[in-house]
Design a protein around this nucleic acid. Structure first.
Lengths: 193, 193
DNA sequence: ACTATATCATACTGAACGGTATATAACATT
DNA sequence: AATGTTATATACCGTTCAGTATGATATAGT
């Protein structure tokens, strides 16, 4: 005996995610949000809580999406080495697309919020840990398949690839010469022998 | 026949730099600034222009300071390899200090402003280019001294070290396990043979 | 059809925002 | 000491901020 929601909560959350991803937390206003989400202010508050809670929900949604995306990219493809190469190449290509370079939502949140908010310190750290596990498992698969040398330390290399991916993603925000980005990616990928 | 400034412009700018460095552009208010700088609002506007211009002046000051700091660290020390190791170790140590992890002001600005403001895209990119030159020159010195193998591609390795340093600095904002940071730094520094 | 309940749209709240007008105070030159 | 110029301090400007009170509206169960 209640009136049902007239908007799609997932769709609206997706819209909020896009906005926070592109502009960050502070620079995104509630008016920006309600406009893009296509809902009114009280609907937002009743469905998601305040601005910080909405941001957190958006980031969690992004992290899920991002993990799935990376796992899929690393599982498909002919080889582990080629999968990583393609992944890094895709990140670089993304950096030179049109429009503002939004990079990785989780890294943006790590820079803007993690140092001042323990909740986001944990949330962003745990996502990187999860990505590291995905990388490590992929490397171990490559070792088992005989594609990578058996003396490769999968955990250490995975950690290094994650740090390098973070560096590359952030660096691309300044739109450096493409050769710079390509060189550093290629040098890092030489870890995969 | 004029009244002289009653405050030290460099000291006040330094105070603004500390504040923007720790909190970012959007999260820092003019009231925060005037309080920490110890001056009144009209003094701020007459001396530095508006908020964005003050931020730019603060970032330029930081970049100068940062370049000098890195150059000094890489020149002192017993060897090039040891200098880089010590530099990365210092970055990690900084990440586990008390208080909020402010990281690198230039990288914070790159994430928050570069995608939406061409001026900061250029400013942050040029600083990274300058750091790359410092790294490259240091590596070339190591090659000349016979400390590094002569087939090391100084430019490519310098670019890779810059990207890795960016990744490490940003990653530390989420306060990961220290062993993670140490592992990735050590693996990167293995490039120096 | 009626009622209970939750959602909707509008309009509003006090506070904080970036930026400035105004008037007083302090100095260097004459 | 008088004058012209700039820095200072206070108080204010209109706007925008995050968040909410209010009342109309729509639906599900009776």
């Amino acid at each position: 005996m209640v009136r049902p929601r007239a908007f799609d909560e997932e769709k609206a959350l997706q819209a909020a995610m896009e906005l926070f991803w592109e502009k960050g937390y502070e620079a995104t206003s509630l008016s920006d949000l309600t406009a893009k989400m296509g809902i009114q202010r009280p609907s937002l508050y009743s469905a998601y809580g305040d601005k910080k809670e909405l941001f957190e929900a958006a980031l969690r949604k992004y992290n899920q999406f991002h993990s799935s995306y990376l796992r899929a990219r690393l599982q498909s493809g002919t080889s582990v080495k080629e999968a990583f190469r393609s992944l890094f190449e895709g990140i670089i290509a993304e950096g030179y697309g049109e429009g503002p370079n939004r990079g990785c939502f989780c890294l943006n949140a790590m820079v803007e919020l993690a140092p001042h908010d323990a909740k986001f310190e944990v949330l962003t750290r745990e996502h990187q840990m999860y990505l590291t596990v995905i990388f490590q498992e992929t490397l171990e698969r490559g070792i088992r398949a005989g594609e990578l040398r058996s003396d490769v330390n999968a955990k250490r290399v995975a950690q290094t690839l994650v740090v390098a991916m973070i560096g590359l993603t952030v660096f691309l925000k300044s739109r450096p010469d493409r050769a710079f980005a390509e060189n550093s990616a290629a040098t890092i990928l030489d870890l995969l022998q």
